[in-house]
Amino acid sequence: NALHVIALLLLLLLLLSCGISGKSQVLFALVFTTRYLDLFTNFISLYNTVMKVIFLLCSYVTVYMIYWRFWKSFDSENDTFRLEFLLVPVTGLSFLENYSFTPLEILWTFSIYLESVAILPQLFMISRTGEAETITTHYLFFLGLYRALYLANWIWRYHTENFYDQIAVVSGVVQTIFYCDFFYLYVTKGRCQEGDGHGIPIPA
């Protein structure tokens, strides 16, 4: 979670420049909204509540900054991923494959599936622009690192509690796979390109 917050803070810094996909940020705001409805149904712990509120605040502030406060620096020509291509399958799958057919559970499942693909508009955008600003690459790196640590967490919990959440694990693996392509570019290209400060060239 700390890494996720770092990624969010990096993202807020990033808003002063363009290169961020507003659509991905809208999807993340939707992910946290549909997942954290249990804030109103059952209190778990102060930490749990505080972290959820931080995630919700950051994601909505981010969307506001992109589309209103810094709308001039928003590169909408390249942020053209069709969200319906993500929302329709994710909605359908959350009705088909879930743990129980109740509103809260379906919304939770929807948010888990949506989180897996929420970064795609961002990856699509940097492939269109052909390069990613250095801070964008750091943002994606921390987000990817947070995902990778979840894999380690699931392995750890499986060996200690002999439990795993199938829907969360499968969708988390899918999400991490999307980052692997980026990680490869980050490691191979990031080093040599770092000098000229123009970020990493992303082949289409």
């Binding site: 997942r35 409805l37 249990d38 959820k52 809260l104 559970e105 939770w108 439990f163 988390g172």
Partner: peptide, 10 residues
């Protein structure tokens, strides 16, 4: 699943 802290992703 939703609201289950022990077995849920944040």
């Amino acid at each position: 699943s939703a609201g289950d802290p022990d077995h849920d992703e944040l």
